[in-house]
């Protein structure tokens, strides 16, 4: 059984200093076991300027077991699968501690973006590129950030349009997009579940 009291408190604390950290956590479903996290790309990296969405699922044993996280936004990073978004990070596995929170875990993921560990890769292709041709790696990562992690205002309007064509009212579409941080698929999921 997930400790909902603690999750609630974590969400409150995270929203309290959202401005400083830039990290957002919002519940996807009402029962607080499925959440969505948002981290800004670290400045000075190919991910700068991007907004990365993560899907967070809390296991029954949380906080004694680590939350299950993966990137929804596509990322070009040696320790993140370019296909599935799976994250290779020790604190999300055996080095998890109940003293960590969703916010500190997301901060760690953000730190992972700025400090890749190509010797312990999740995505072997990316890691190879990182080690052999760092310039190309940077170019690809920047391109992926531009392509997948940036939501222009025009993009938002296009998504609104697209979702409205599916038959949802505009106000609901906009609020759903806002709630999930602009991700089209997650907004659709939210609209369908509500």
């Amino acid at each position: 059984m997930v400790d909902f009291g603690r999750v609630q408190k974590e969400l409150q604390e995270c929203s309290r200093d959202m401005e400083a950290s830039g990290i957002k956590i919002a519940p996807v479903s009402d029962n607080l076991v499925h959440l969505s996290g948002t981290i800004p790309g670290p400045i000075g990296t190919p991910y700068e300027g991007g907004t990365f969405h993560l899907d967070i699922k809390l296991p029954d044993g949380y906080p004694f077991e680590p939350p299950k996280m993966h990137f929804v936004t596509k990322v070009w990073h040696p320790n993140i699968s370019s296909q599935s978004g799976a994250i290779c990070l020790d604190i999300l596995k055996d080095q998890w501690s109940p003293a960590l929170t969703l916010k500190t875990a997301l901060l760690s993921v953000q730190a992972l973006l700025s400090a890749p560990e190509p010797d312990d890769p999740q995505d072997a292709v990316v890691a190879q590129q990182y080690l052999r041709d760092y310039q190309t790696f940077q170019g690809t990562a920047r391109y992926w950030t531009e392509s997948f992690a940036k939501t222009s205002s025009l993009g938002v309007e296009e998504k609104v349009q697209k979702l409205m064509e599916m038959g949802f009212p505009e106000s609901l579409v906009r609020s759903a997009l806002e709630a999930v941080g602009g991700d089209e698929n997650m907004a659709l999921e939210k609209l369908c579940s509500s």
Binding site: D3, G5, R6, P63, F64, P98, A99
Partner: peptide, 9 residues
């Protein structure tokens, strides 16, 4: 701490 950092009780 006034509350447990794990369970917040």
């Amino acid at each position: 701490p006034s509350s447990c950092p794990i369970c917040c009780e």
